[in-house]
Amino acid sequence: MTTQALITGWLALLVFSFVSTLIAVWPIPAHWQALAGAAILTLAWLKARVILGRYLGLAQAPFWARGFGVSLALFCALLLGLYLIPVML
């Protein structure tokens, strides 16, 4: 992995972390909580993809990057579903 790719990956992680924390501390109306939760979990998925691709080098192994990306997306969708149960009821 090139130093440039590592730097952009690190910056992306900082931005995604900042945005997800901002969403969590922002006084969001109750009826927008589900959307905020979905945004936070989407950012978590993006952060995981950056770590896998840039830090762990999967960007150079497209087959495995795709496999991990899809598996993590399904896992985050499961977390979102569980999170939304009380919001939807």
Partner: peptide
């Protein structure tokens, strides 16, 4: 990096999802 990866999933679920 695995420790890092676990944290970026754990942090939003435990601390951020309200």
């Amino acid at each position: 990096h695995m420790v890092d990866l676990v944290w970026v999933l754990l942090f939003p679920v435990i601390y951020l999802l309200r």
